[in-house]
């Protein structure tokens, strides 16, 4: 076994020191070592999107990222999305309002993906949302409500920006 190496990850604004084997993925480091289990392991092969989080503000898949690759990058997980006082992010509120989940397992990945989708400017229409949320599978089939939630959140964030 390769020797675990010391590593500092910046997770939700806080530096977190840990020791990981080189083969440890960012997903396993977060879930198994830092007890941040909001980021889900679905397929573990980059096909389902359940492990979506943000690295330096961009949505990526934690299951196909080595923890070592994320060294020095800003990592945001679902646990870091709400405000310091617990106020939910507009996308979280919209998922609740639109009932955009059934079992909820894909939801953290859907929400992290949706935050980025809106920020990228890819939430202009239902068709555009479907295309740019295609990397997040929902086996319960909550897709119509997910699209509605992304549209609702996009409107809310636009109004926030205007206000």
């Amino acid at each position: 076994m390769s020797t675990p190496r010391p590593l500092t990850l910046i997770v939700n604004g806080e530096p977190r020191a840990l020791q990981v084997e080189p083969r440890t993925t960012l997903l396993d480091a977060l879930r198994e070592r830092l007890d941040l289990t909001g980021t889900k392991k679905g397929c573990d092969h980059g096909q389902c999107g359940a492990c979506t989080l943000h690295v330096d503000g961009e949505r990526v898949l934690a299951c196909l990222t080595l923890a070592q690759q994320a060294e020095g990058r800003r990592i945001t997980t679902i646990e870091g999305l709400a405000g310091p006082d617990g106020t939910l992010h507009a996308v979280q509120k919209a998922f609740l309002a639109e009932d955009a989940f059934q079992c909820g397992y894909c939801t953290p990945g859907q929400i992290m993906s949706a935050v980025a989708c809106i920020r990228e400017g890819h939430a202009g229409s239902a068709a555009e949302i479907r295309e740019f949320m295609a990397g997040n599978l929902c086996r319960c089939g909550a897709y119509p409500h997910i699209v509605a939630a992304v549209q609702r959140a996009a409107r809310a964030l636009e109004q926030e920006t205007l206000a």
């Binding site: 979506t52 949505r59 993906s113 740019f132 295609a134 990397g135 997040n136």
Partner: peptide
């Protein structure tokens, strides 16, 4: 190609 997440990586 692929998905938005994969295209970011």
């Amino acid at each position: 190609s692929a998905s938005p997440q994969i295209r970011n990586m």
